[in-house]
Amino acid sequence: METSSVSPHMRDTSASINDNRLKILEATMKRNQYRPDALIEVLHKAQELFGFLSPTLLISVARSLHLPPSRVYGVATFYHFFSLAPQGEHTCTICLGTACYVRGANNLMVAAEGAIGVSAGKTTADGTFSLASARCLGACGIAPAVIVDGVVAGNVTPRDLSARLVALLASPSKDESRT
C-alpha cells in the first residue's frame, strides 16, 4: 500500500492483544457463534471499530470463523462498504444516484474534488480527507444530497459544499484539538 507519509491521526490498526476493540470484535463473533455466514456482520463491526480492514484483521477473522483467507478477502473486496485502506479523518460522500444526478450532483463532485484536491474514492496524502461517491442514499426528496462526516445534508449547492469542505480542512484536526 502506498502511504507516503503516515499521518498521526490515521486510525491505528496495529492492534495489540489488549486492544479493547479486538475484544469487542471477539464478542461480536461469539454472539454469532463463530458461524461462517456471519462474515459480513463481522466485517461491518471490524470496519466500524478499526476504520478499515487490515490484512491482520482479515486473517484473524478468517481463523475465528473457520473460513479460507481467500474467501474472506473475496467478500471484503466485493462490497463497496468495506475498505482495505485507511480512510481520512474527515469523509465526504456525494450521492450520485439518479435523482441527485439529474439535479446536478456532478457539479458537487467537481466542487468537492477542487476543494479537497483528490478524486472520488481517494484519500489525501496527509490522511485528512477522503472523498467518496454513493450509489443512492435514498434521500432523493432532498436531492442533491451529500454526507459530510456522517451527517446527511440535502439541496446542496456546489458553493455551499466547497465552503463547508474548505472550512473543515482549515479547522484543527480532532487529535490536535484533543491534546
Partner: peptide
Amino acid sequence: VHTWDISGR
C-alpha cells in the same frame, strides 16, 4: 483447500 477465490467485481 480453497486457496483460490475471486477479489473485486
